[in-house]
């Protein structure tokens, strides 16, 4: 038992001679919005499937909400909502009928309140007026919303979402983001697997990065994005600034200089004192994209030989 919502120890999965997931130690804590990143083929989906007991690990252990998976997965899974590799539903039935079947299939959902749960889930994702249309007539975005509704059906303590904004328009993406933040504020832990770095950067407090089956990074976003100690200066008098700062300019891109060294306030005073005009002056922070691209190789869908390192 532990306080973690998801805890894996040396989790490994081999398919024949291929090691898809290699000794991964995930640690997702209550209240996290955890971003799970990595290039295509890095083992994200296999890991998510092992967390949910769909794929059985070769070695290592998974603890989900304090219960060992797959041995006591049933006890944990009732408190988990998940969207794995795109939504799926019975195409001949309406969205409402699909959710009703899903609710009836699992344990614990009492029958008299079933309709209310289904209505609530549909409303949450903006499908409450969808009517009796069969799911096969739904657009990609509507299917995605229905999949989210199914994940939310039991008011789960943990949401495991794999590419939840796939197929949604910018408006829809914004809605889902707002929904996740709202649910998280109400106490739901969110495990978000994605390769959209911008999306993860906007909502996630912690990230784990997978590359070729190994967890190469797991940390708080705030720590990763802490100031680097450099200052970014934009000035129309870039040439004069470079000669003044002499050797402390780490990089130059037109009017934009990255300066090592002093506090921004001191740097500003120095520049202005020399009559150099400053249009912008900020602390340098690395973007999530720079961090992730710096530590991961190309995805497995790249097959021109550069993938083999």
């Amino acid at each position: 038992m532990s306080d973690s919502v998801i805890l894996t120890r040396a989790l490994t999965k081999r398919f024949g001679s291929l090691t898809a997931v290699d000794a991964v130690d995930l640690d997702v804590r209550p209240g996290d919005i955890y971003g799970f990143l990595g290039p295509n083929g890095s083992g994200k989906t296999t890991t998510v499937r092992m967390l949910l007991g769909l794929v059985l690990a070769t070695s290592g252990s998974v603890e989900l909400l304090g219960e060992p998976v797959p041995r006591r997965a049933k006890r944990a899974l009732g408190r988990v909502g998940a969207l794995v590799e795109g939504p799926a539903a019975y195409g001949d039935l309406s969205g409402r009928a699909n959710l009703t079947l899903a609710d009836a299939a699992g344990p614990g959902g009492p029958r008299p309140t079933r309709k209310r749960r289904v209505d609530e889930a549909l409303e949450r994702v903006g499908l409450s007026e969808v009517g009796r249309r069969p799911v096969k007539a739904y657009s990609l975005g509507m299917r995605q919303r229905l999949g989210l509704a199914a994940a939310l059906l039991r008011r789960p303590e943990l949401l495991v979402l794999d590419e939840p904004t796939n197929g949604l328009d910018p408006q829809g993406i914004h809605e889902v983001r707002a929904l996740l933040i709202e649910l998280n504020a109400a106490g739901t832990t969110v495990f978000l697997s994605s390769h959209l770095l911008a999306e993860v950067e906007q909502v996630c407090g912690r990230i784990g990065v997978l590359d070729e089956g190994r967890l190469v990074l797991q940390d708080d976003v705030a720590a990763l994005r802490a100031p680097t100690g450099n200052t970014v200066v934009s000035t129309p008098d870039a040439d004069r600034a470079v000669s003044l700062l002499d050797g402390r300019v780490a990089a130059r891109d037109g009017d934009r200089l990255v300066v090592r060294g002093p506090e921004p306030a001191d740097l500003n005073a120095l520049l202005v004192g020399e009559g150099i005009r400053v249009t912008e002056l900020i602390l340098e922070r690395r973007t999530l994209e720079e961090i992730v691209l710096g530590i991961t190789g190309p995805g497995s869908d790249r097959v021109d030989g550069r993938a083999a390192r």
Partner: peptide
């Protein structure tokens, strides 16, 4: 094939 098997199993249905 429909992809609904994984959702049934994580509902969870043993």
């Amino acid at each position: 094939q429909a992809g609904t098997l994984r959702y049934l199993l994580i509902r969870p249905v043993g």
